[in-house]
Design a protein around this nucleic acid. Structure first.
Lengths: 196, 196
DNA sequence: AGAGTAACCGAACGATCGGTCGGGACAAGG
DNA sequence: CCTTGTCCCGACCGATCGTTCGGTTACTCT
């Protein structure tokens, strides 16, 4: 077992602090001085644990990306009708957004100023395309209405889901976000499904 | 008539350039040097037209806020059943987002680091509450389903609409965004309305 | 021609940026 | 006791930040 006592920083525990500050002030708006105050150690001590500011960003967005792509490997995202796989991905996206909230928040806000940010944006675009293909298949299989363009519908669906990072606070709700996943599915799919 | 010739900057034309750079690099990620390169004049010349970087931000978000609050004063947002007023506001929000895209984009991304940013966030919260009240009324009048919490539904609706700033490019579509407004209404309301 | 002014510029300001450096405190292992 | 390595620090680095200042164009008005 690992010791519960944690009186010193590791790259991971330091990352948790940094990501929170990044989300409050924005990545560019956060200085190493801000991070040192929040972590309670000196600016130079941060460099004992990580190589620099950009490594913190890279670690954070990597964690978010891994969480999202992990969804696509789950059985529920690979087997069955496209519409059911899409609903599964939708629910699990809400799950990942809520459980990895600060990391995904950071991912969704990168602007592409550095190589790390551009890499993150590209991976994110890959994920979006994978989900868009799922939605197209569901239309082709006749389970989703085709009068709204697939790419547009995907973007609006992502807009709904990704907006969680703007308002979801785990301490104010059940932390698993099950009721939110229900609401998203209700709102999105009752509008997308062919009338029953 | 105003002369079409514009060989020198005004605060407004300079603002248009600045807002574009702000949106590409982020406000904090944009230096006055970046702005001067984009505008084609020297850094110090910018201060001949505006008081500083923050004034550019204030002008931009003010323009966005005025556009959004203007919607609430329109007859379509003040008369008729709540559900119809809500649909009108939804369509007009898409209209304002598309026509004032860079300014609204900037508004939706402020993080609250300065007094100007906190003021913008507060005004935005006011607007959100006004729309949330509209949605609550529509539920009370029996036109929208009540099994999804009103505040949650509002946030998801805003998530859909506001996501436009992440992907809408006026040069790639009809610049008025009418088809997008249709899609948003279809997706959101066919899921929100009581089954007919 | 001369005065006034709008538009602009290069150089420099103090402050802060991300990051480096040499070393101190302290616990573990011999 | 002495070494070794972890964790941390204050002081400092060159670069860049937003902003200021003194001065130079170039056009308008009289």
């Amino acid at each position: 077992m690992t010791t519960a006592k944690r009186d010193t920083y590791t790259p991971e525990t330091l990352l948790a602090v940094a990501v929170q500050v990044f989300n409050e002030r924005g990545y560019d708006g956060t200085s190493m001085e801000h991070l040192s105050k929040a972590a309670g150690i000196s600016k130079s001590s941060i460099y004992h644990h990580v190589a620099g500011k950009e490594e913190l960003l890279r670690r954070a967005v990597s964690r978010a990306i891994d969480g999202l792509f992990g969804i696509l490997d789950e059985p529920g995202a690979r087997e069955g009708r496209a519409v059911d796989r899409l609903e599964h991905v939708t629910r699990r996206m809400v799950g990942v957004l809520t459980s990895e909230l600060p990391y995904v928040t950071l991912l969704l806000r990168v602007r592409g100023n550095t190589e790390t940010e551009r890499w993150a944006m590209e991976r994110r675009r890959d994920f979006d395309h994978r989900v868009a293909d799922l939605l197209k298949s569901a239309i082709a299989e006749g389970d989703l209405r085709g009068d709204v363009e697939a790419r547009l519908a995907t973007r609006l669906l992502f807009g709904m889901i990704n907006s969680l990072v703007e308002w979801f606070r785990p301490e104010a709700r059940g932390a698993d976000g099950a009721e939110i996943a229900d609401a998203v599915v209700q709102l999105a799919f009752r509008g997308l499904r062919v009338e029953d």
